[in-house]
Design a protein around this nucleic acid. Structure first.
Length: 588
RNA sequence: GGAGCCGUGGUGUAGCCUGGUAAACACGCCGGCCUGUCAAGCCGGAGAUCGCGGGUUCAAAUCCCGUCGGUUCCGCCA
């Protein structure tokens, strides 16, 4: 490229103020409009595009070259920025008031006709996009999304830097640990027969950094989990990982709120109200049946079990006899729903494993319901009041254990939001869910499992129940939920060896195994480990929310397919026998 | 591991349920015309045996089975 073609501006930045200036631009040909005489080229770079005018009278050479130009050719030009004639202004373009009168044009690299058009409005097949990712990423939506992603990490970094956090790196080649997801493993050449594991998160290392006295740590870091993919799950993903010493849960949450305020202001222009509301896990389950409730919608759950304590109806009597509850919510978004709609909801509830869904519709003083004949007047009134049904409004009730009804009602609630196209009350709803149970019972393995992870601290006031009633123990933990999506969570950690060992024991981790897998941690806890706690956020999911994308692949430059392959490079791939030999590996 | 959906010129789709004439449309591509377009326009042209394999049938893009790829969900994901 000649010296005089080094660019002076980005295409999308040119405005009226540049009129009269001599500029040099580089970019890709977005479109060519050849009028035989004058030729218009839209030149595009990451900032946007601008119209180039190639007039044969101004430069026959440039005009001739423009005639040969095709979509996606890489070109450079030099010329004068000019105000467009008033009738030729394009209000749809940021640069629509100006154009560049081309004096010199240079072809830097021609291009094959791309396998799909780099245009808005057309989304090619996913496998094509992934195979030609570098072309897919040229599309403006993808550019905008990744630029937004960069803005998020930039904002996070500057906030944390300003607040005394130190960015520290932790190893990618580390040790496989029990609990949690399946590890990705890397064979060791120097230690034949041994394997590293890629980190599922830097959890233990960041705790060790607290022991080391760094006080406040953060990292924007890749994590790896070898589990099946979903629309919001990739095998490698990025976390905003933080840890702080000498703090309580409250201080961690306040710090995070400051960070998120700035992110939302910076990238979405949204002023977050802080402090954010906090719901205990228990309350969230009662009100929404969900530990990641979407507070943009109503339809909170009411418990009506008491109402049916002395019911005439066998259905209720038997259910209550089994210790089950009656819970439900008022259906928003539809009044006087048709039988067809109600049947559809019943069908949906059956699909969730429920025996049936009881619907009621208030009609004047009466209640329309398949069960109305079996309901006493008192019960009818109780339902209307309990669910707060207005005229024509419907209620949906389920029978079952607290856990069953929670699971099903929360899914039903999410389904209704989508099915009836409900309008959110606010663009963003953020809420902390706090005080999760420390353990849950794993039916299959017949043992307790950590709800969060094994390093989460029980609430001090619950320490006494630890061995006696483990399921009653709550932890100092917190999840941040935005628009019904868990964007991150954390906890105060255990910083004393004796407590950590008690928790390991409850998880069924034998002394020997605990020492073998976590000995380094137990040891570190004995060398002056400060009280500490932290949090980690899924950057990809956060960007998905901020960008309004419903797929994690759209916020990652080079994602994997659902079957874990990379269509661009062909990974994963087989190894040459020699490589396998060096690693002392044999495929079976 | 299981279930659903999708696969038709380069791209996006229609056709498939209800098998039967030249597989249709838009965009793109190639050529020509054209000096103010911006999804430029006008004229002309090339381009698909319908993912792959098997079966049913006189006949399969269409029905059936299998398989591959993509995708969504369940299981899984501390």
């Amino acid at each position: 490229m000649g010296y005089d073609m080094r660019r002076t501006h980005m295409c999308g930045d040119l405005r009226e103020g540049h009129a009269g200036e001599e500029v040099a631009l580089c970019g890709w040909v977005n479109t060519r409009r050849d009028h035989g005489g004058v030729i218009f080229l839209d030149l595009r770079d990451r900032s946007g595009l601008v119209q180039l005018v190639c007039n044969p009278e101004l430069s026959p050479r440039a005009h001739a070259l423009a005639h040969q130009a095709r979509a996606e050719y890489v070109m450079a030009c030099r010329g004068e920025v000019r105000l467009r004639p008033p009738e030729a202004v394009n209000p749809a373009l940021a640069t629509g008031k100006v154009e560049v009168m081309v004096r010199e044009l240079e072809l830097l690299n021609p291009a094959q006709t791309p396998p799909f058009e780099i245009q808005e409005g057309v989304t090619p097949d996913e496998s094509l996009r992934l195979r030609y990712r570098y072309l897919d990423l040229r599309r403006s939506v993808m550019q905008e999304t990744l630029l937004l992603r960069a803005a998020v990490t930039r904002t996070v970094r500057s906030y944390l830097d300003e607040n005394g956090f130190i960015e520290l790196e932790t190893p990618m080649l580390t040790k496989s640990t029990p609990e949690g997801a399946r590890d990705f493993v890397v064979p060791s050449r120097l230690q034949p027969g041994r394997f590293y594991a890629l980190p599922q998160s830097p959890q233990l290392f960041k705790q060790l950094l607290m022991v080391a006295g760094f006080d406040r740590y953060y990292q924007v870091v890749k994590c790896f989990r070898d589990e099946d993919l979903r629309a919001d799950r990739q095998p490698e993903f990025t976390q905003i990982d933080m840890e702080m010493s000498f703090v309580d849960a409250d201080e961690v949450m306040t710090t995070v709120e400051g960070m998120f305020s700035r992110v939302f202001r910076e990238v979405r222009g949204f002023e977050m109200k802080t402090p954010l509301p906090r719901l205990t896990w228990r309350r969230s389950m009662e009100l929404y049946g969900d530990d990641r409730p979407d507070l943009r919608f109503g339809m909170t759950i009411s418990e009506l079990t008491e109402l049916f304590a002395s019911s005439e109806s066998r259905l209720f009597r038997e259910a209550l006899g089994r210790g089950e509850s009656v819970r439900g919510f008022r259906l928003d978004g539809v009044t006087s729903p048709s039988r067809k709609i109600l049947d559809e909801l019943v069908e949906f509830a059956r699909g969730l494993g429920s025996a049936g869904l009881i619907w009621v519709v208030r009609e004047g003083d009466d209640l329309r319901s398949p069960l109305s004949r079996h309901l006493s007047e008192e019960e009818k009134t109780g339902i209307v009041e309990g669910l707060g049904l207005g005229e024509g409004e419907a209620g949906l009730l389920l029978l079952g254990t607290f856990e069953e009804t929670s699971e099903r009602l929360s899914r039903l609630r999410r389904h209704c939001v989508e099915r009836f196209g409900m309008e959110p009350r606010t663009p963003w709803s953020m809420v902390w869910i706090v005080d999760f149970p420390l353990f849950e019972w794993d039916e299959e393995e017949g043992r307790y499992k950590s709800n969060h992870h094994p390093f989460t601290s029980p609430k001090t006031e619950h320490l006494d129940y630890l061995e006696k009633e483990p399921l009653r123990v709550l932890s100092d933990s917190y999840d941040l939920v935005i628009n019904g999506s868990e964007v991150g969570g954390g906890s105060i950690r255990i910083h004393r060896r004796d407590l950590q060992e008690r928790v390991f024991r409850l998880l069924g981790l034998g002394e020997e195994e605990a020492w073998e897998k976590f000995g380094f941690l137990l040891e570190a806890l004995e060398y002056g480990a400060p009280p500490h706690g932290g949090v980690a956020f899924g950057l990809d999911r956060l960007v998905m929310l901020l960008a309004g994308r419903d797929n994690i692949r759209d916020v990652i430059a080079f994602p994997k397919t659902q079957s874990g392959t990379d269509l661009l490079t062909g990974a994963p791939d087989v190894l040459y026998p020699q490589q396998l030999g060096e690693l002392r590996l044999k495929t079976i």
